[in-house]
């Protein structure tokens, strides 16, 4: 059966298929998120940014995002995207705004794909914001 724009039944096939597939993924436990820990951060940094030597790592309260400070003053973000993890070198030219709201550290970057990060860092948000904003930071 081919897809014919004039035949609504043929157009329904992909839509019903999509619904069935998503239902099957959900029913088999597909709605999950990666939980970030120190070992995972180090492993992924060594794979994706092999030249980045992490000197300090902070992981937010819900284990969704981590911020790593490099030995040379650079920074990297490691964050969950579904059940996978994404690593970003935090380039200075990409950094738009760093804001602290209570225990929340908000990082706004110019990245089109995933530009905003909010890390719950009880007691540490302000200190990390200062470090990110420090002028001597090397990108």
């Amino acid at each position: 059966m081919g897809m014919d724009p004039k035949n609504p039944v043929s157009l329904l096939v992909p839509l019903i298929g999509i619904a069935l597939i998503l239902a099957a993924v959900w029913l088999t436990g597909g709605a999950r998120r990666a939980r970030i820990d120190r070992a995972l951060v180090l492993a992924r940094l060594s794979e994706d940014l092999p030249d980045f030597a992490a000197a300090e790592i902070v992981i937010d309260a819900d284990a969704a995002t981590a911020l790593a400070a490099g030995a040379n003053g650079s920074f990297a973000l490691v964050f969950a995207a579904g059940d996978k993890v994404v690593v970003r070198a935090l380039e200075r030219r990409e950094l738009r705004r760093v804001k602290v709201a209570g225990d929340l550290l908000e990082i706004d970057t110019s990245a089109f794909t995933h530009g905003r990060f909010a890390l719950a860092l009880p007691g540490a948000a302000a200190a990390w914001a200062r470090r990110l904003a420090a002028p001597e930071r090397v990108a």
Partner: peptide, 13 residues
């Protein structure tokens, strides 16, 4: 095996 994740699959479809 964790072959499928919901949002990833939805995006692909």
């Amino acid at each position: 095996k964790a072959a499928y994740e919901l949002r990833d699959t939805a995006a692909s479809l």
